[in-house]
Design a protein around this nucleic acid. Sequence first.
DNA 1: GATGAATGAGCTTTCATTCAT
DNA 2: GATGAATGAAAGCTCATTCAT
Lengths: 221, 221, 221, 221
Amino acid sequence: MKETMEQWFAELEKSEAEAVKMTEKQSKILQAAIEVFAEKGFAAASTNEIAQRAGVAEGTIFRHYKTKKDLLLSIVAPVMTKLIAPFVLRDFNKVLDVDYDRYELFLRAVIANRIEFLRNHMNVFKILIQEIPFHPELQEQFRKNILSKVLERMNLIVDKFKSRGQLMEIPNLTVIRLTMSAIIGYVITRAYNENREDAGWDDEFEREETISFIIRGLSIK
Amino acid sequence: MKETMEQWFAELEKSEAEAVKMTEKQSKILQAAIEVFAEKGFAAASTNEIAQRAGVAEGTIFRHYKTKKDLLLSIVAPVMTKLIAPFVLRDFNKVLDVDYDRYELFLRAVIANRIEFLRNHMNVFKILIQEIPFHPELQEQFRKNILSKVLERMNLIVDKFKSRGQLMEIPNLTVIRLTMSAIIGYVITRAYNENREDAGWDDEFEREETISFIIRGLSIK
Amino acid sequence: MKETMEQWFAELEKSEAEAVKMTEKQSKILQAAIEVFAEKGFAAASTNEIAQRAGVAEGTIFRHYKTKKDLLLSIVAPVMTKLIAPFVLRDFNKVLDVDYDRYELFLRAVIANRIEFLRNHMNVFKILIQEIPFHPELQEQFRKNILSKVLERMNLIVDKFKSRGQLMEIPNLTVIRLTMSAIIGYVITRAYNENREDAGWDDEFEREETISFIIRGLSIK
Amino acid sequence: MKETMEQWFAELEKSEAEAVKMTEKQSKILQAAIEVFAEKGFAAASTNEIAQRAGVAEGTIFRHYKTKKDLLLSIVAPVMTKLIAPFVLRDFNKVLDVDYDRYELFLRAVIANRIEFLRNHMNVFKILIQEIPFHPELQEQFRKNILSKVLERMNLIVDKFKSRGQLMEIPNLTVIRLTMSAIIGYVITRAYNENREDAGWDDEFEREETISFIIRGLSIK
DNA sequence: GATGAATGAGCTTTCATTCAT
DNA sequence: GATGAATGAAAGCTCATTCAT
């Protein structure tokens, strides 16, 4: 069994993408809505502007999506699922098989994969982050489908590296929180510096420093 | 000179709070606006609802604040300034005098202070975070008045601890980013668990673990 | 070539009227707006009342005209153009061919034609006169498209009758002013008396007296 | 009895002006209101702007004038009266005594006098003309107090010059209309050219041409 | 399926007017 | 007498949504 984790990710991504069937107009509407929602926020976005950018009549939007909110959910929900793709591989054993020897390698793989993901879905991710506080359904979905599953899987992974003597004996939730804080902080700073030419951001370097920082902070000396 | 950093913070906070002069109605409007903005977001909040909650006529709002956006800025701007109070103490020498021997102590003081601050201004802070992406003026203000000043001061502080041999020789910006990621991750998780009784969140413990994590990640072995 | 000037006017009027394409609702809105603007003045007219009289929803007005002012301009602009129809016949030679032997005949033709015009567009004309002082765009339009063209054409006409020895040698502008003052004074008084049954206004008589007055005032003895 | 008509006019003007008693604030309000009404029209003028220009509180306006409309009437009514000052000299006989030998002289005196008047009250006059169509009270006032009195007096004057063989035998109303049309046309064109440096308006010349035009148009050959 | 005119509720904002100080 | 904060009705305008074509 020579499959790598990356291949698993790719397969998952693909199979989800293929599941979608929509007309050209519908896809244009989605694309336009993503743009406008990301630019102005859901509440300040007008269906009129979305229709114009999509090059369709305003009525056409409501043929495909009952309400404006429906349109939001249609955008955000599938990305929420994809967001945790790496953590919900179906075959449990395989995950462990296709595993990494060290926490460091695992982190590096996850970061690379999720950055690739965000590059493709940055706008939807922005919308998700922006709107979660105002839509209980999104919160519910997030908690049930995302957070719990990620935590569940990460629990196993942390347990494994603990048992191999690579991670300190502090509560799993704390390990996960500290790991994720560092990674998310890296990703956000990275995104913030992406469009600024004068930033002097050395991505390769910062990523490695972040990983090293996590390892130093969590390893048994 | 036995003053502590905390005393400085307190004094600053107080003097700013006292500077405000407004009628009772005006303050009720502000309070109501903060509530509604935090609950629904700026764009989805209606001046009508704000007026009702404040117990004033809708026209009264516009006597005090030319536009709805004006109202937003009046709420957010002063808090932005207070947000960095600990980093803009006027007398430079005193800051160093009232200083801490170890990075760890410095972190513990900053966290305690800012958590206290957030307890008092959580709603406004939420609004600030939510609205910054959609209002270039806020972004500008944030970059110029907040980010640059915090970085400037943190630079000095990191330099000091580096020179004392307590911090590794990695770029200051990286040190700052990693430190802040961990702290902000702690603060957010804390806030997330605050209203949930079943959370089993041991704040004292998590805070200390976070500080230890940072120290381990950044110290020279 | 037996065409008369009147026929030219009629043709021009017709062709302009035909150029307009609009839905039934749109035309009802225009009609209602003309009524209300004429009755109350632009500033005192409410889009709400216009909508009610037109039998449409208020929003419908703003689907067709971006702003209330837009609605005003849409009403006034085309009438401004028609106002000077007799003075902007395209084919210059024909104008002179279809010409009149005496200034008196010319005046009688113009008055008859413009009175007919005003009978059809009195309300819009009122609005135009009322609103010109408050809208620089209207002033500009009036100066450029109306006044200058009328003066230009009248100049030629006055020159012609001067060269035929029918008009005194006073400046053309003065001739035009005196002629128009008398005619406009007649038209206004006529309009003022139109709705009053007790007025004892003998229109035929007054018109002829006005023309005679002008001729006596401007002819070489 | 060597008094001239001009002296009568002056006396009348003065005595009316003196009759007014008002505080400094009140007069500032009036002055500001005149400005704003003339600039924007009554309906589009806001009491707020008037108060600001007058340098008083908005409430102060309503202490002196029950409503905004009251303010309008307080401005327009007295000027309406003054407008016809030359035609309502109290002592009937004196009017005829202080009389002119020729219609021409009478016209020249009236024009000079009313132009002086308009120079001082142009803004109020503008307001009057603008608002008359929308306020039945003003129309009523105008008809009863102004139009009828002017016509009554002009009737006598025209009769006199007819009896002296200076004016043609056409109806008095027609004579008056033609006379006034020419004069008003002159006054308006004059006002229109007043602020335009490039106009090349020779006021003396145009005035005399206007008078000559009237005389030629109305005299027995 | 797609359109876009029409809707009417609701939005932010303005305004003349009131009234306690 | 003067103030200016407060009012609430009404203004112009926007918007998500509907529906006949």
